[in-house]
Design a protein around this nucleic acid. Structure first.
Lengths: 334, 334
DNA sequence: TGGATGTTGTCAAGCGTTTTTTTTCATCTA
DNA sequence: TAGATGAAAAAAAACGCTTGACAACATCCA
């Protein structure tokens, strides 16, 4: 195909080993020769073949990221910062989308192993313990989002959902709300359960009866249905909290369709602080979980795990902060 | 590291060539042996090393996609369908994000070449002719989005922007609008120029004076500024067309901030039919360019180019259709 | 019956790098 | 000046797979 290291070596009148040494900056090469090689590489426009490189050097400078849905606004920012960070750290990165399908998750993991990655960030929940074991057995570093407990090769980024929910409820309470609905996600996902339980706990702590709880699907459609339902309730809650922004945007639309004004008639709070919350009319009060940092952290954590001689998986806590938009305010007494 | 083909061969009592032949379905293997090998592979949990594979088989079953911004809602859907389709076709796929930076575009292309891809879908505009030449010289198949003319290894997916714009203007005209503003993108991008010119042409054809043209940046922020400006104009246009949905969402917010009601006071039309248009309140009238098909088509086109012995780049036209939402309607005479 | 033909497998030569080992050669020391 | 020392470069052995050439063997046809 293209040029090989041999072509460069020949053109520069040195051995392939020397070219390789120059390209990988391992010292051992005189300044004159180094410059000669470098200029030859540039002149010829030589590019090392990644596959040959990865094959020959046992060390695996590739990191993977598995997400459940590239289209879900939760992920792009994470992907972007992961890609940017891995590049900075000198890794190659590969992405797989599982489309929420456990079988595809298995495939994605296999792909990662076939690529001989040093580590993989698993940002999806549909993953079996068996799979984790396999990754660990192959000494592949792993970071999860709110999932497995940390151990040797496994670190976890744990988002403080509970705190985010608590801040939201306390804020609504301070604004006079007493009747607060919650639109949850599927109760099969740990992170959804955590959020729902946090909501119930803090409500009780404040002496409030946990309001109606509806079940969405983490998507727009589920939120829309929930919003319509809530808008027609009697008595109607004065505030709604949604499990994520996408749901919140749906809820907003549902409420408006049902003839409610937001925030005049009903306050609304989302979660994740995606740009959707900002784009919305009114902009949505939401909880910032620093998604832009998430991808970067995942890369950093994997890098640490990969380069450590004796890796120690850790749990990293990611704080959540209420971010006030225009979809919430004091309760109106009519 | 992990298991090699040799381990499998030994365990099954055959040669590595046979294992390889089974795994690549090249015939030449009896049913008994085939089953034996297959079950051994499964039992041992063997996964072929991708790098060794790509290195040994000159044929390059990897396809790349380069986008300018994973976070821009225009792209995720395209990426997703590209990934899905390449998987179906049996390719491995790699993604690069250039962040609108020409230097990064160069890097991304280099990465693709280093990966020895068979083809690459270039979904970004910041690309130099020199780079295209280099790709062609290396016999790498390429598809562009509205860019280079087609030739041997280069196909182009051409979106029919002009028709989309024309439909929009005619629709507004029919609804009684005579004073129609346009929020454009940077005039350095061909696709932006096409849209702007189409707008000017059709306006003139209808005997209308092309209204105020503002320049956004294809992002929310630019749209917001433009929306605010338009909202305060006097006389105010009765309709606004935006170069894409993200801009339209910004315009909507700006208009509302400026005290305009949409669509009562002013109609708004976006472009691309991203889900943003649907999420918005009111939902935005927009132009559907079948983005979900775009990624798939890119993969198909590359596949065709790669597998043809004598590749003939073509131009594929992608139709655009006006999709009416709640942000537009008849002009109000007051 | 004996060559032609087909089927099933194996051998071994790569693929383009990295990396360990070896060689070369200049410089230094006693 | 002989030997030791060390730096710079070359040689050569992997890395894990694919694949064309070839071998073994059964089957067929005339």
């Amino acid at each position: 195909m293209g040029l090989t290291i041999r072509d460069v070596a020949k053109a520069a009148g040195v051995s392939t080993a020397t070219v390789s040494n120059v390209l990988n900056k391992r010292g051992k090469v005189g300044r004159r020769t180094e410059n000669l090689v470098l200029s030859t590489v540039k002149r010829l426009g030589y590019l090392p073949n990644i596959h040959a490189r990865r094959l020959a050097s046992r060390d695996t400078r590739t990191l993977g990221i598995i997400v459940s849905d590239v289209e879900n606004p939760f992920f792009p920012e994470i992907i972007k910062s992961f890609l940017a960070r891995t590049r900075q750290l000198g890794y190659d990165a590969i992405l797989s989308d599982t489309n929420y399908d456990p079988r595809r998750t298995q495939e994605a993991a296999s792909r990662m192993m076939a690529h001989n990655v040093g580590g993989v960030a698993i940002m999806t929940s549909e993953i079996s313990p068996k799979l984790i074991d396999e990754l660990v057995r192959r000494k592949i570093a792993v970071t999860f989002l709110d999932h497995a407990p940390a151990r040797g090769y496994v670190s976890t980024l744990r988002i403080d959902y509970a705190s985010g929910i608590e801040q939201s409820v306390r804020y609504l309470h301070k604004e006079g709300h007493r009747h607060i609905a919650f639109v949850a996600g599927r109760p099969t996902l740990r992170s959804n359960i955590i959020r729902l339980e946090a909501y119930e706990n803090i409500m009780q702590q404040l002496g409030l009866k946990p309001g109606p709880v509806l079940h969405g699907d983490l998507r727009f459609e589920g939120g829309l249905a929930a919003g319509l339902a809530i808008g027609k309730m009697f008595p109607r809650p004065t505030a709604v909290m949604a499990v994520n922004d996408l749901t919140a945007v749906g809820v907003l639309k549902g409420l408006i369709k049902a003839g409610c004004r937001v925030p005049e008639d009903i306050s609304l709070i989302g979660f994740d602080r995606t740009r959707l919350a900002e784009y919305s009319n009114p902009s949505i009060t939401t909880v910032d979980i620093h998604r832009d940092l998430l991808g970067q952290m995942a890369a950093d954590v994997l890098h640490e795990l990969v380069s450590s001689p004796n890796p120690q998986g850790k749990v990293y806590e990611i704080s959540a902060e209420l971010y006030i938009g225009n979809s919430s305010g004091p309760v109106r007494s009519e």
